[in-house]
Nucleic acid binder design. Structure first.
Length: 343
DNA sequence: TCAATCACG
DNA sequence: ACGTACGTGATTGAA
């Protein structure tokens, strides 16, 4: 029904690569005010997703012996060196929406003497860019413990830190994310729903304020073109066969990979080192708490309550000191009766 | 079987 | 002029 009539709400209707009209969340959200059906469709989609993927599926996967759900972690799938999780995927449990958060609440400790302990790296990828690029401005923001998105907003929009408003911080946050992925003015404009010209100015200002980040990105591409691969901090390689392609689109994709892979991959290296060190230490101390999950920049534990103080110290220490950086690595944590409240 | 969509970092 | 932000896995439904 929706596909065949397709209300004329846009000047240029976006299509997928097979020529279908796009109806994804990003596209529909921009049309929210054009027709009352849009919000209804989005809400319906969200509820179907949550019901089919989590509410209906997960309870069936409890192992009859353990009464628990067991995932499998794959170490040789993700090109950057991240883990992935399947059968079921426990790295994409909802948290962003109100309804989704209700699902996360269902993840609870094993018994009455236990709590969920969740510890996550704060801004690890931006800290890695700061470290790898050596950019003084970004390094100093982290060393002085500033909120990185506000600090970036102050620099990019050339105002005092105290004069950064919500909109400026939100835009700076989008650029910081974009940087990790290999921004284009178009992509940022699309993401923020602002004119491309404005996005271009923001990016230019960003690189003026963080000049070595620009250099680092250019050098990553340069290196990939010469050697055919890029490397993480622990020297995991990602080969980029298309880096010298004559097709600009294909090459552009490889160039963004050249920027992103060392950053995302180094974060994966670091949390893996932390996991090994934490496991070794828990074992040698005969602790009863258990490491349950890894979600890229977060570790989740089934915490035996008498071990609370010891575990907090052990885990934050091993995570923050997994690697020797000039830029500090910061870990935030929470302890609660379910995974949601442990954040 | 595969494209589209959407859940997460 | 072109297409355009990185990495995954599960579900659905058209082809």
């Amino acid at each position: 029904m929706f596909y065949s009539t397709y209300y004329k709400l846009m000047k240029r209707r976006k299509t997928t690569k097979t020529g279908q009209f796009k109806t994804d969340e990003a596209t529909l959200s921009k049309l929210k005010n054009k027709h009352e059906i849009i919000v209804k469709i989005l809400n319906y989609r969200q509820q179907k997703k949550l019901k089919s993927t989590y509410v209906d599926a997960l309870p069936k996967l409890a192992n009859p012996t353990t009464n628990k759900i067991h995932t499998t972690y794959l170490q040789t799938v993700a090109a950057t060196g991240r883990l992935s999780s399947n059968n079921p995927n426990l790295q994409n449990i909802p948290i962003r929406s109100e309804m989704g958060r209700e699902i996360r609440k269902a993840f609870i400790p094993r018994g009455k003497d236990y709590k969920i302990f969740a510890a996550d790296y704060s801004q690890i990828e931006l800290r890695i860019i700061a470290e790898m690029s050596g950019d003084e401005n970004m390094k100093n923001a982290f060393i002085s413990g500033e909120d990185i998105h506000s600090a970036t907003a102050a620099k990019v929009f050339r105002v005092e830190l105290k004069d950064v408003d919500r909109e400026m911080r939100s835009k700076a946050k989008a650029v910081n994310f974009g940087i990790i992925y290999g921004v284009s003015a178009f992509g940022l404009a699309q993401n923020l729903n602002i004119p491309r010209r404005e996005a271009k100015e923001i990016i230019e200002s960003y690189f003026e304020q963080y000049p070595k980040i620009k250099t680092f990105m250019d050098q990553s591409i340069e290196l990939a073109k010469e050697k055919g691969f890029v490397e993480t901090i622990m020297h995991r390689k990602r080969y980029l066969k298309d880096i010298n392609s004559t097709n600009g689109i294909v090459r552009g994709h490889a160039e963004r990979n050249a920027i992103n892979a060392p950053i995302q991959g180094s974060a994966a290296d670091i949390i893996k080192i932390a996991m090994i060190n934490i496991h070794d230490e828990m074992k040698s101390r005969n602790l009863q708490s258990k490491m349950l999950l890894q979600v890229h920049d977060e570790l989740v534990f089934d915490l035996f309550i008498p071990e609370e103080d010891e575990m907090i110290k052990l885990v934050t220490d091993k995570m923050e000191n997994a690697i020797d950086f000039a830029v500090p690595l910061k870990v935030e944590y929470g302890i609660a009766d379910n995974w949601l409240d442990a954040h």
